[in-house]
Write a protein that binds this DNA or RNA. Structure first.
Lengths: 196, 196
DNA sequence: CCTACCGATCGGTAGG
DNA sequence: CCTACCGATCGGTAGG
């Protein structure tokens, strides 16, 4: 179906070059049709973007949820670490992740409201996943008795920092930075008397 | 001097709207001249951008250095915290900070090399500032005996995370997140036996 | 799904 | 520093 292909190719182009640097001619060429034919499927460039955005939001949340379920019967450390790792590798390697990073960090101005909404939706989805893990960790005295808000906030800052850094460093440096950051984070949240 | 005004107005426009969304007509209007008159001062739009980039790099590094000197006779905690706070408030409030964030995160493709260079230069500058503080902290047994690389990496991830988040949250939420992240970071790096 | 075309706007130039 | 203008390209439309 051509409509599907338009959305897929647009996602790739928006992810790699941004909305403003992607022209309808670029999209048409990637799809293998002429520019005016795009208007048989979408009424404007804006409409294509908003469809892509909606698709990505849905897929991001499905992905996060599926990853959370995977580690349900492991230790607190393993569960948090798994969420952390899978989120990062997703953001680093997938086209959806690149698109999401690009539009959330510096959104095309005309869409900034919708994009903010999507960002907060994905974040709430993430909170629903990690909050029970953190609460269980405090209850079992694996984590320090800090407020859940403090712990989730610090977790977000951790992944947001790496989410950004993934753009600047080669794989080796990024991997090193990612391990170091996790190590300090874990030392900061775990109950200090705890043996590992 | 008109040249100075062109650079200042361009910085503001690039910071707020990005390179691709700023036209020479926008710049000329902000300066109060007509578009072709810009060519008496710069030979192209690219040249204006590169001059702005160079200016910002210089000012960023001067700013960081001046902040580091300020807290030389304080405790390790105070020194690290001061660097952390002043860097963040600078990034959040200044036009230079916004420009720096925009171009480093998703650089205009034709300048990605020069921008990466500038980013790494500023980062090296930051490393020169925090490394001696961290080394002294380990030596004095205020910080855990981890490798300096691990500690600086985690510090960067912390500030990069907040650097990104500053875009999404209102002042109050950001302030809360920033305090929570610092708290966990400090718990992660400080020598656990230490009384505060 | 195409060819042909639109008005607007882009960075940049000629010439004074 | 300006007016007048350039070729190229943008998103989008007419008409089949």
């Amino acid at each position: 179906m051509t409509q599907r292909k338009i959305l897929d190719e647009s996602l790739t182009l928006f992810a790699n070059h941004g909305y403003e640097n992607t022209t309808l001619a670029n999209i048409a060429e990637a799809v293998g049709i002429k520019k005016p034919s795009l208007y048989n499927h979408f009424k404007s460039k804006d409409a294509i973007f908003l469809h892509v955005l909606e698709d990505v939001a849905k897929r991001e949340m499905d992905y996060l949820s599926s990853q959370a379920d995977l580690s349900a019967d492991h230790t607190i450390y393993e569960r948090l670490h798994h969420i952390y790792r899978s989120y990062l590798s997703h953001m680093a390697d997938s086209t959806e992740g690149m698109f999401f990073k690009r539009v959330t960090f510096f959104p095309p101005e005309e869409f900034s409201e919708q994009i903010k909404e999507v960002f907060l939706m994905v974040e709430n989805n993430m909170t629903d996943i990690i909050r029970p893990v953190i609460e269980k960790g405090i209850e079992e005295k694996v984590l320090r008795p800090l407020s859940t808000d403090t712990l989730t906030s610090a977790f977000y800052t951790l992944i947001d920092g790496l989410f950004l850094e993934e753009n600047f460093y080669d794989k080796a440096v990024f991997e090193q930075r990612q391990q170091a950051s996790w190590e300090i984070f874990w030392l900061g949240i775990k109950e200090p008397e705890l043996e590992e």
